[in-house]
Amino acid sequence: MLEVARLTKYFSSGLVRKRYLRAVDGVSFKIEKGRTLGLVGESGCGKTTIGRLILRLTKPTGGKVLFDGVDLFALNRRELLAIRPRIQMIFQDPDSSLNPRMKIGTSIAEPLKLHGTIPKAKREQRIRELIETVGLNPEHINRYPYQLSGGQNQRVVLARILAMNPDLIIADEPTSSLDVSVQAQILNLMKDLQKEFDHTYLFISHDLDVVRIMADRIAVMYLGRLVEIGETKDIYDHAKHPYTQALLSAATVDGGREQIVLEGETSSPIDMPAGCRFHARCPYMKERCTIEEPELVGVGRGHYVACHLA
């Protein structure tokens, strides 16, 4: 369904002595139809940039994105416009995704109008259907976003996305601004919708607990590169990369795993350390790690790790 190959994005700064911020540096992965890939990493690792690149909201520096066999970067404006309804994005903050001066119904009608998929007469009925699919009442149609809670607004965003009948949904931290009890409602809704409409999800999050529930496969990112990718179960039970292990131990509430507290912070993506990007914080660092950058290597069953010691 979606194939990302050696995707790269550098941001440049400075006029004379140009310096490059390597936000995404040669990332490759595939997502099969109806499946979910969880993309995990901390702030600044480039996970949001990947989402934006797939939607062509920013220009890539290099690489390829194949969506259903179509090279998205080779499309011209018109072709892109035609394919965009099939790829939709959910953002972190529902309140800023909705126009505060538009009624909920109008917001949902907007994409229907824009792409003219449904005749005007049937629009009203379609909006009602969508509103009910996401678990809201028809009475919400005439309300404004400020009259609804964060969770309800995220439902509206989902309804608006469903209006386009998308195949691929890129969800960028869709529940990180919500309370846990509401987060559970939205995540369950997203799972139900996926089952019903056979959506493919790229689920971007920093929360490993959430990703575990949502994803079939998980990709862990650090400083612009994938450090580990594999089936959700393999990542949880047999994480090979020290960074993944640290993330997992930090996410634990029940104290079942031993806590690994990493020293230091993520280095700047501008002055990238030589060798493995993680070596400065890695508890198992060897000399080789400071010289040679590890590549993703298969360790069985579609599980890949970029670590010299794995």
């Binding site: 509401v182 929360d207 509430v253 029940d254």
Partner: peptide, 13 residues
């Protein structure tokens, strides 16, 4: 309602 405990939401708000 925590993801690790089964993600059972509390209805309503």
């Amino acid at each position: 309602s925590l993801p690790r405990n089964g993600l059972v939401p509390i209805p309503g708000m």
